[in-house]
Write a protein that binds this DNA or RNA. Structure first.
Length: 552
RNA sequence: UGGGGCGUGGUGUAAUCGGUAACACAACGGACUUUGACUCCGUCAUAGAAGGUUCGAGUCCUUCCGCCCCAACCA
């Protein structure tokens, strides 16, 4: 297995900063990161970037990395996701040091909120959501205090207790941090830190009916775990002052620091949970694990390897610039990994019958399982009197530069000698239904049967090869940036083509779910983990091979 | 409009007291090849713009320009 980049130490501005912090003795020299997903959806390639960053940094600096579920909003979260997320992280090849849930800290968070109230840093506001928004103002309108801002701490304390006790209806009161109602940074205009939600929580059940907001729960959860470097995406940048406010005002023993980086943008796909959910709900794809989805599960089923995703994350780097990564970079990462590891086999996607008129008898041909890895051995493929080749490897009137099978020309048969097309059979409407060829045994050296070099080599399978279902996957969208209201109109109608009469080498019948092969000259294919049946794998195309001929 | 960020080739990432613009992907050209794959070789940027400081600036200063984020009781 070649995995040169995935184990290489991370080199980016965050790693630099950690190095700095350590040299200054910050955080006692410790490095503790965390990956904090909200369990309200499945992980996707964008999360993979964050996972590789957080776990990678901990690895590189001999620190630790926790998995913490940010489960502060019971109305959107579900246990289904917490299980799936853990499975996906492990599959990617990472292990967390500690597993936590923000909900484990609810009691502590509540006490800290009381402390804030007592010290005059928080108050219960009984304004409605609309009123709060109105009083908050906007970029051009100054914010103002609501009538409840200066109520006595004791009153807020009592009301906060009533909120917890379920004696106040949803929407009738919230706890707000008391900072500055007219701060230029909107996030500091007395942000809400607790709201009433009479919802069942997947872990705490009905114990709570008030839930902390992310902006309050996150920094304090980090502090509880003594996280040193709390890495998040750029949109939280102007929340950082409040992050620091929480840490400093509550005055937690640990003082974690938030560092932001740019989230991953990939073209020809969508990344937001909202849109992915919509694709699933509207059945535009076959669920979260559809091989076309860039969810971790989708990628896994498609045939992407963990190493290839790690290599991709490493290659794209980390910085604070909003940028778009070309889908080709991801595709190239699997190609590179699979080229090194996947055994070779032959499969004919669109079969064309070829009769070898002069073949005396069946012939056993020995083919290498990997050109660069002799240790993977050889396999036997029978050359039969009738074989299949791919339709696109034959042209009756070849374009210039075509060096596959043509009438009267020799072409090499992978591992099985040469053939020359003598005649073409057609149906009534003129479609080619088969060709007849003269076969010639393999020849040592560079010369072909007719003298001179034979440039082309094509793949083939025996005439009695079983039919197999092969699914050719392509990018989900046909435009680089599917956005706007009509983003779904840009779904690629050809993102999946199902071939039910492909012919694969008989040996492939024994492939297990998840096994991946390179079908020579066509691409990498993975035996589907859900739809395959014993002895009859269904093949998913992971990615094509590069094809400098097709480009012309 | 107030606040916060960002701007190096087609794409992404580097160059950490200012000193010959590096690496990868893509593209193009070539070599090799029983996968038109792989591999190998070569070509491909003067830095958002304009000024300034300096012997010398992507790196410092000034002024513009462009793009992104923030006005949920979401995260």
């Amino acid at each position: 297995m070649s995995e040169p980049t995935a184990t290489e130490a991370l080199s980016n501005f965050i790693a630099d900063r950690i190095t700095d912090d350590r040299s200054q003795g910050k955080h006692g020299g410790r490095v503790v990161t965390r990956f904090p997903p909200e369990p309200n959806g499945y992980l996707h390639i964008g999360h993979a970037k964050s996972i590789c960053l957080n776990f990678g940094l901990a690895r590189d600096f001999g620190g630790r990395c926790n998995l913490r579920f940010d489960d502060t909003n019971p109305s959107t979260e579900d246990i289904e996701y917490v299980d799936a997320i853990q499975e996906d992280i492990r599959w990617l090849g990472f292990n967390w040091d500690e597993l936590h849930f923000a909900s484990d800290y609810f009691e502590q968070l509540y006490e800290w909120a009381q402390k804030l109230i007592r010290s005059g840093h928080a108050y219960v506001d009984e304004s409605s959501a609309e009123e709060i928004a109105a009083y908050r103002g906007d970029f051009r309108t100054p914010g103002r205090p609501t009538p409840y801002r200066d109520r006595p701490a004791a009153e807020s304390l009592a009301l906060f207790e009533k909120m917890r006790a379920g004696e106040i209806d949803e929407g009738k009161a919230v706890l707000r941090a008391k900072i500055d109602t007219n701060h230029p940074n909107m996030n500091l205009r007395d942000p809400v830190i607790y709201r009433i939600k009479k919802a069942h929580h997947h872990r705490t059940g009905d114990k709570w009916c008030i839930y902390p907001m992310y902006d309050y729960a996150h920094p304090l959860s980090d502090a509880v775990e003594a996280i040193t470097h709390s890495i998040c995406t750029l949109e939280f940048e102007d929340h950082r002052p409040f992050y620091d406010w929480c840490i400093n005002t509550v005055d937690t023993p640990a003082k974690p620091n938030q560092i932001e980086f740019a989230r991953l943008n990939l073209n020809y796909t969508v990344m937001s949970k909202r849109k992915l959910l919509q694709l699933v709900n509207e059945k535009l794809v076959d669920g979260w694990h559809d091989p076309r989805m860039l969810t971790i599960r989708g990628l896994r089923r498609r045939g992407y390897t963990p190493a290839s995703i790690r290599a991709f994350a490493h290659q794209i780097g980390v910085n604070r610039t909003n940028s778009w990564i070309d889908m080709g970079v991801l595709e190239n990462a699997v190609r590179e990994d699979l080229n090194a590891s996947a055994p070779r086999a032959m499969a004919v996607l669109r079969p064309l019958k070829v009769t070898l008129t002069n073949l005396p008898e069946e012939r056993a041909c020995s083919l290498s399982n990997h050109p660069q890895k002799p240790e993977l051995g050889h396999r036997e493929v029978r050359l039969t009197r009738q074989i299949f080749i791919d339709r696109e490897d034959f042209e009756e009137v070849p374009p210039k530069g075509f060096f596959r099978l043509v009438p009267g020309g020799w072409v090499r048969l992978r591992g099985a000698g040469f053939i020359k097309c003598d005649s073409v059979e057609k149906d009534a409407s003129g479609n080619v239904t088969g060709v007849s060829c003269t076969w010639h045994a393999p020849i040592e050296g560079n010369e072909g049967p007719g003298g001179g070099k034979v440039k082309g080599t094509i793949h083939w399978v025996p005439g009695d090869s079983p039919a197999a279902t092969v699914r050719l996957y392509d990018r989900l969208f046909s435009v680089e940036h599917p956005d706007g209201d009509d983003w779904k109109a840009h779904l690629n109608p050809n993102s999946r083509e199902i071939l039910v009469d492909a012919r694969v080498e008989p040996s492939l019948a024994h492939a297990k779910s998840g096994d991946t092969f390179q079908f020579e000259r066509t691409g990498y294919f993975c035996a589907d983990s859900i739809d395959s049946t014993p002895g009859k794998p269904i093949w998913n195309r992971v990615v094509t091979l590069k094809d400098s001929w097709a480009k012309r």
